[in-house]
């Protein structure tokens, strides 16, 4: 089967997320249909960190939305932990971090982080103690009672990550979570996400525009091309773990980055010659 060539084989462990022939199209205005994803095959092993990278319009975010039951594929099967995305969502097994931190302005950090647990129906004392733990985990200790408007972009995104982790999801979806941050803040949050994902062994599907960020964090990097969104190539990132930011200076990292950029550029060419 061609599936192996498309990278179905998980890096190890049980299959946590499976995309099997996912095809998504949606209408944008009259008679205009965007073919967002075409025949996507991808499997994430338990505890695996996979990044999606590619030019705008390649369907990276759409794939996250399929996995979280925000949209439904018109063809193909998606499963999360052996369940449909809808069941996994209703069982609170999915966490989602958006590019915009999307915190509730009228709630302090503690109440924002505790929100999913509150929705789930957990008691106040229990959910607040869990939220406090998570706030400490993402390095926001001391800001429990700060309101979003009082926080920097990086801090807001930390709170957003803590909120997504509050229900202890089996799958964490991250849609360019650091895209709007400056380089220094981004490096710092990359490092912390690296430690966090290595410690918690969460399965993470991460969308980014930065090939270096993708390589630093991931077990595998999926390079995608647009119109329709397809997987072009999957890079195995065999850099040893635990990793530090300094891994970016290694020859192996540089080689992977060059490879990734070359693959990406072809995607952009396809994109340009499209018109």
């Amino acid at each position: 089967m061609t599936s192996t060539a498309k990278g179905v084989a998980p890096a190890g462990g049980q299959a946590q997320v499976v995309f099997d022939g996912i095809d998504v199209a949606y209408a944008t205005g009259r008679d205009k249909i965007v073919h967002a994803l075409d025949d996507i095959h991808l499997t994430l092993g338990e505890g695996e960190f996979v990044s999606l990278i590619g030019p705008s319009g390649c369907g990276k975010s759409t794939l996250l939305r399929v996995a979280s039951d925000i949209i439904t594929a018109r063809k193909g099967i998606c499963s999360v932990g052996g369940r449909t995305p809808r069941t996994a969502r209703l069982k609170r097994e999915i966490g989602f971090v958006f590019q915009d931190s999307a915190l509730l302005e009228w709630r302090d950090v503690l109440q924002n982080v505790a929100l999913p647990l509150e929705i789930e129906g957990m008691g106040r004392r229990e959910r607040e103690s869990r939220a406090r733990e998570l706030i400490a985990t993402v390095g926001l200790k001391g800001f429990e009672n700060a309101f979003p408007r009082q926080l920097s972009g990086g801090m807001r995104q930390r709170a957003s990550i803590a909120r997504a982790m509050s229900t202890s999801p089996k799958l964490l979806l991250m849609d360019e979570p650091f895209g709007a941050l400056d380089q220094i803040t981004r490096d710092r949050l990359n490092l912390e996400l690296l430690e966090l994902s290595q410690r918690e062994r969460m399965t993470v599907l991460f969308v980014t525009h930065s090939i270096r960020e993708a390589i630093l964090l991931s077990d595998r990097v999926v390079v995608m091309t647009p119109r329709p969104g397809r997987i072009k190539r999957i890079l195995d990132i065999d850099l040893p773990r635990p990793r530090q930011l300094s891994v970016r200076d290694s020859a192996a990292f540089q080689a992977l980055a060059r490879l990734g950029v070359a693959e990406l550029e072809q995607g952009y060419e396809v994109h340009d010659t499209d018109h």
Binding site: I70, A102, L115, I119
Partner: peptide, 26 residues
Amino acid sequence: YDRTVMQVFHVAAATDVQRFLKMRLP
């Protein structure tokens, strides 16, 4: 209301009443 916040509530499997009281009303 903020559309991304609505998706946060969707992923958290909030009921319509919860969406109204905790998001749309505020």
